[in-house]
Amino acid sequence: MIPEPLARAPYVSLVTHRRNGTPVATPVWAVADGNELLVWTRDDSWKVKRLRNDTRVTVTPCDVRGRLTEGAPTMEGTARLLEGADALLRVRQAMAGKYGLRFRLMDAGGALLRRGRRPHVGISVTL
């Protein structure tokens, strides 16, 4: 199971690694789903490109600007990309369940701007 501070956090800092090993932190929305932490992002984002080379990640609760929550646990894990239609639907539904209207507006509004295309990928983090 995902620890409660990570499951409840509105944002988590997802740390991925460049090819040279340099860590890069990005604040993201995340949803606990069983033993996984699910993230929704653009398929051309740098974090996705980094994950294609190195699946090691760390996650820590943070605020919208990526400032870590004082005393919050940092957990190490492994990420995998979720790209099939069923997997993406699962991630979208989980995000809509946690973030409600904010996520639905962001998802639908972005799809309108992109003429119906949803160039996104899910990320599953196993701790």
Rank of each mutant, 00 (worst) to 15 (best):
A96G: 06
G109R: 02
A7V: 01
M1A: 08
S124A: 15
D33I: 06
D63I: 08
W46T: 15
R8H: 09
G21K: 04
W29C: 01
G110A: 11
R102D: 13
L101T: 14
D54S: 10
P27L: 04
R117E: 10
N53G: 15
G100F: 01
R50Q: 14
G109N: 01
L82R: 09
R56I: 04
R52C: 04
P3T: 04
V31M: 04
W46H: 12
G122A: 07
P119S: 12
A108W: 12
Y11H: 10
V48P: 03
R19Y: 05
V64L: 14
M75P: 05
E4H: 05
P23H: 12
K47H: 00
M95C: 06
F103Q: 09
D54Q: 14
D43N: 09
L14I: 00
D43Y: 10
R118E: 14
V91R: 03
G34W: 14
G109T: 06
G122E: 06
A111Q: 07
A72T: 00
T41M: 00
R56D: 01
K47I: 11
T55M: 08
A79F: 06
G110H: 04
A72M: 12
D54E: 11
A87P: 12
E76W: 03
R92Y: 15
T58D: 05
R18F: 10
P23T: 10
V57Q: 08
A96Q: 11
V12Q: 09
T78F: 05
H120D: 11
G71I: 02
P3C: 08
K49W: 13
R42V: 08
R19H: 13
A9D: 11
D44Q: 02
L112T: 00
D63P: 05
L89S: 13
R90P: 04
L51I: 06
T60V: 14
D63T: 01
Y11A: 10
R8F: 03
